[in-house]
């Protein structure tokens, strides 16, 4: 038997395999025979080393979890099976596929609906939670503006009427302005400290988040390679999402402070 005959015969016996798989395994055997010939053997000898063709084919099919008693049987019987089976299998496969697709579509639309609903709830909840903070902020700015107006009013009138000049009154207004300025400075310092704290905290959290992403990537690669790390990877994913949401929250707090500052400066 020469190389061509051997490969043809083997191809016939492995006809149940998918085309690319078949090509793959045939390539291996062809290369093997070529290299044997290169190392000095004759074509016949190289092929004889493989032993019985039937046994070889059976062993290959076994590697694919194909029932081996299919292949070594006589040609007609096998081709019948081979012709009948893929059709049936393909039909069943298509049915299952269609079912899956429908199911996934329904699930997707349901999830979309549920997602919208949940998003609406979240937006509402955030608004509700934010309400007292916003109220506090408004009251605080109101108070501060009042302070400024008052100090201005108190500063200006005495300049206009120094002639009436009661020393006690000028002293009082001066003290009031001083206290107002002090309070303003204190407010400013407080907010600066708060912003620095927020930014620092957000930076730390984001650093941790970056580390989490790195760990997540590494773990995913390991998981795909087959290590039993599904649990750890999920935990890591959770951490990643958690850190980023926390960082986002803290950053919004920082921006709120800045906005207030800006609006006040405009006023």
């Amino acid at each position: 038997m020469n190389k061509k005959e051997f490969l043809e015969e083997l191809g016939k016996k492995l006809a149940v395999l998918q085309e690319d798989e078949l090509r793959d395994i045939m390539n291996e055997y062809e290369q093997h025979i070529d290299m044997r010939i290169q190392s000095g053997l004759s074509e016949e000898e190289a092929i004889a080393d493989f032993g019985s063709l039937g046994e070889l084919a059976a062993e290959i099919l076994e590697a694919y979890h194909v029932r081996t008693d299919y292949a070594p049987g006589d040609g007609t019987d096998r081709t019948d099976h081979a012709a009948a089976k893929p059709g049936g299998a393909a039909g069943a496969g298509r049915k299952v596929l269609d079912g899956c697709r429908k199911g996934i579509g329904a699930l997707w639309s349901w999830m979309k609906g549920a997602g919208l609903w949940i998003w609406g709830c979240v937006v509402w909840a955030v608004r509700q939670i934010g309400r007292p903070f916003r109220w506090c902020g408004r009251v605080l700015t109101q108070k501060r503006q009042d302070w400024r107006h008052r100090t201005k009013e108190e500063k200006n009138p005495p300049e206009r009427k120094p002639s009436e000049g009661s020393a006690g009154r000028t002293f009082l207004t001066g003290a009031g302005a001083f206290v107002g300025r002090c309070l303003g400075a204190a407010f400013w310092c407080l907010r600066a400290a708060w912003n620095i704290c927020c930014a620092g905290f957000a930076g730390l959290v984001m650093l941790f988040g970056l580390f989490c992403i790195f760990a997540l990537g590494t773990l995913t690669v390991l998981l795909i390679d087959g290590y039993p790390l599904a649990g750890v990877t999920l935990v890591c994913l959770g951490f990643t999402l958690c850190t980023f949401s926390i960082a986002g929250l803290v950053l919004t707090l920082v921006r709120r402070g800045k906005k207030e500052e800006r609006s006040e400066q405009n006023v």
């Binding site: 395994i25 291996e28 093997h32 062993e59 290959i60 590697a63």
Partner: peptide
């Protein structure tokens, strides 16, 4: 038998 190693590799 040299032929048997390829199926093993495949598996």
């Amino acid at each position: 038998n040299e032929g048997t190693i390829y199926p093993l590799l495949k598996r």
